[in-house]
Amino acid sequence: MSTLNPAAGSAGLSPGFADPVAQAQACFRAVLDAMARPGRVHTITGVAPPAPLDAATAAVLLTLVDHETPLWLDAALRETAPWLAFHCGAPVVTDPRAAAFAAARGLPDLDRFDAGTHEMPETAATIVVQVQALGVGPRFRLSGPGLREPAGFAVTGLPADFSARWAANHRLFPCGIDLILCAGDRLAALPRSVTIEEDG
């Protein structure tokens, strides 16, 4: 665990949500809709986090993470731990298996995280993955709950073998990891229930 170092001062910290109640609600509704309709892209505005956190990544964490949810950060985002600790109050953990939430630039190994148990699949981790772009790049075909019919989904910044890695995660259902993909101020979600195939 790391806590905010008082010696570092708060002068260097940029603000979180200007209107925490309304902005957290708006962000939650976007994430809820994204989770309910896999692949649908939403735009989140109103927060200017320190680099390398993207606006959407920061908004999702401000909305969902607090002292009850251990947070794991990959090496690329670890420098933003003081900002997240200050605004969310989340304990930052180094063991991915202990994390309820994780944030990373690029997809971490999913099997390093808690995927829940068959009796309590809801304890599985949610990973916020910062990617380069949503809506452009390699195309996938999504099907499953939330989708009227199989839908296309394009994303830049996931590993080349993503659909195989996802299949291993999806096979664990009802256990498994849920992903929230963020790029700039845009986000989309891939719940464990969705089937992903490479398209074309």
Binding site: V31, L32, M35, P121, T126, P145, F173, P174, P191, R192
Partner: peptide
């Protein structure tokens, strides 16, 4: 709620 949606 988010976990509930992910596990219908």
């Amino acid at each position: 709620l988010l976990k509930a949606v992910a596990i219908p």
